[in-house]
């Protein structure tokens, strides 16, 4: 038997953690625990990103998603988790219905995921046979953040369009999307601050 493939090992570790904690989020009734499980799940997803070679996105997931968004969410949970709202029971009928719908959705998705032949073929395996290098070295072939950054402002280093040299710069990137997201973010932050500002509703009686 050949050596353990560490990529697979860590994939299994993070994948199980991500899936398991995601399931725990669904099954748990306590909102605070749900928040905790969600953090663990998203952390594991960040690990999967690292495994898939997306180091920058993985770090971003940790920093913005887990470190920022989730803090906000946990904050919200803490502000509202009082008495009856900590654990809210869902009626059994909804559970059954949701399980049926969710289960069928899962079956469908899994079927798609494993039935496309191209997706099942493992490039790493073939390459590993060809080269002497162990497969994990492949991980260093990751995307440099500077390429990502260039792509964001419109310079694609990976896919220059050979047919239209004039459009090589500025046309194939994500500048517009970047701008939209930025403005969106700004609007959202102002809006959130406006919505969540202190309001005194009614008198004290």
């Amino acid at each position: 038997m050949e050596a353990i493939n560490w990529h697979s090992f860590f994939f299994l570790l993070f994948g199980l953690a991500a899936g398991g904690f995601a399931l725990a989020v669904v099954l748990s009734g306590n909102i605070v625990r749900m928040g905790f499980y969600l953090i663990m799940s998203l952390g594991a997803v960040a690990g999967l990103f690292f495994l898939a070679g997306a180091e920058f996105v993985g770090a971003m997931q940790l920093m913005i998603y887990v470190g920022g968004t989730m803090v906000l969410l946990v904050f919200g949970v803490m502000l509202t988790a009082r008495g009856p709202f900590v654990s809210m029971k869902t009626p059994g009928g909804q559970w059954v219905l949701a399980t049926i719908v969710g289960g069928s959705l899962l079956v469908m998705l899994l079927h798609t995921a494993v039935s496309v032949d191209d997706w099942r073929v493992k490039a790493v395996a073939e390459k590993a046979e060809l080269s002497e290098e162990p497969p994990e070295v492949e991980l260093s072939e990751t995307t440099n953040p500077d390429r990502l950054g260039m792509a964001l402002v419109g310079v694609r280093s990976d896919q220059p369009d050979p047919r239209q040299p004039a459009e090589e710069f500025g046309m194939s990137g994500y500048l517009l999307a970047f701008e939209i997201v930025s403005v969106h973010l700004l609007v959202v932050l102002i809006g959130a601050a406006y919505l969540a500002r202190t309001k005194r509703v009614g008198s004290r009686d």
Partner: peptide, 26 residues
């Protein structure tokens, strides 16, 4: 030897607050 080590360090160091928040709440 991470390509995005500086970012990674910041990101992971920021996760420490979860210990604090959850411990404080718990």
């Amino acid at each position: 030897n991470l390509n995005v080590a500086a970012f990674f360090v910041l990101a992971v160091a920021g996760l420490e607050i979860f210990g604090t928040i959850l411990g404080g709440y718990g």
